[in-house]
């Protein structure tokens, strides 16, 4: 009975099926005659009103997480939200934040093939998802950072467990500026990258915009290679020499920002850097509802 009611609240097509062919709609639920009668006698108008309020409440939460995206391609995003709500019911035992992040993945996929939307819309979707994940997912402190980090030539830096690197075709800061000034039509591609780290009990959330050389350094920080090897690799990437000081400074800066962990010298294992596609998923249940 409760499963059937919950589906009615969230699934428009199921409500339509109930109105047109209640026998087919209800047959999978094994309801008693009394339960079936109760469902059939529900006030359809009020039920619809409630269902709409649930849909709007979910939309409001998502729109709050993707403010830029809803401005960049308002009609398409609304259309895709309707599709998302029709396709995916919120699952029990999953956090409300996870629903927002799931929508982020959904909309990024959807916009990639949607006609007539700005080419930077996918970047905006990914950026806002990353920002949301950074703000609202909280990690256990897997990496113990203790004040200033000492980096040496034999250090083995690696990306923090809860840090994520995302690359964009368009410069996100420029998109924000252009949207504010109403000049977004003239935007040109300008690759950029962002590294973020979710909040932990001992470190604040971080979102850092990084340049190409720093990104190249990060890509080599896998917890296996020593800094001297990383310098060699980065120099090879750029076909030049003399980058020792620059790489050293970049690693120190990222370590002090709690984005990189400096592995003890004996360590030879460590996870590879992840992309935003692997961004944090399920966390302990939580909501930000107010009632």
């Amino acid at each position: 009975m409760q499963a059937c009611l919950a589906r009615l609240y969230l699934d428009e097509l199921f409500r339509r099926l109930l109105a047109r062919d209640p026998e087919s709609a209800l047959q999978a639920y094994g309801l008693s005659a009394e339960e079936e009668a109760a469902i059939r006698e529900l006030d359809a108008t009020r039920l619809e009103f409630f269902a709409t309020s649930l849909k709007n409440k979910r939309r409001k939460r998502i729109a709050r997480a993707f403010p830029l995206l809803f401005r960049v391609a308002a009609d398409e995003v609304e259309h895709q939200y309707n599709r998302y709500h029709a396709l995916y019911m919120p699952k029990s035992r999953r956090s409300i934040h996870q629903d927002v992040l799931d929508f982020g993945e959904f909309i990024e996929d959807s916009l990639a093939i949607a006609p007539g939307i700005p080419p930077w819309a996918c970047d905006v979707a990914r950026y806002e998802r990353l920002l949301y994940a950074t703000t609202y997912t909280h990690q256990a402190d897997t990496d113990t950072s203790s004040g200033a980090t000492t980096v040496s030539i034999s250090s083995r830096p690696r990306l923090c467990e809860d840090a994520y690197v995302a690359e964009f075709q368009y410069d996100i800061a420029s998109i924000e500026d252009a949207l504010r000034d109403g000049e977004e039509r003239g935007l040109e591609p300008s690759p950029c990258a962002i590294v973020s780290r979710a909040k932990t009990p001992t470190a604040e959330a971080r979102v850092l915009r990084i340049n190409g050389p720093t990104l190249a350094v990060l890509r080599h920080c896998d917890g296996r290679q020593r800094l001297e090897g990383i310098i060699t690799e980065v120099e090879a990437d750029f076909g030049t020499t003399g980058l020792k000081q620059g790489v050293f400074e970049a690693v120190t800066r990222l370590a002090n920002a709690n984005v990189l962990v400096i592995e003890p010298e004996a360590s030879t294992t460590g996870p590879s850097p992840r992309s935003v596609a692997d961004a944090p998923h399920e966390r302990p249940t939580l909501t930000r509802e107010c009632k």
């Binding site: 409760q2 919950a6 409440k57 019911m89 029990s92």
Partner: peptide
């Protein structure tokens, strides 16, 4: 808390809904 149902097997309703 609320005298309500907010969850059914597999589904989070997302709001307070009435009991039968």
């Amino acid at each position: 808390e609320h005298l309500a149902v907010t969850r059914a097997p597999g589904i989070e309703i997302g709001h307070l809904s009435p009991l039968w």
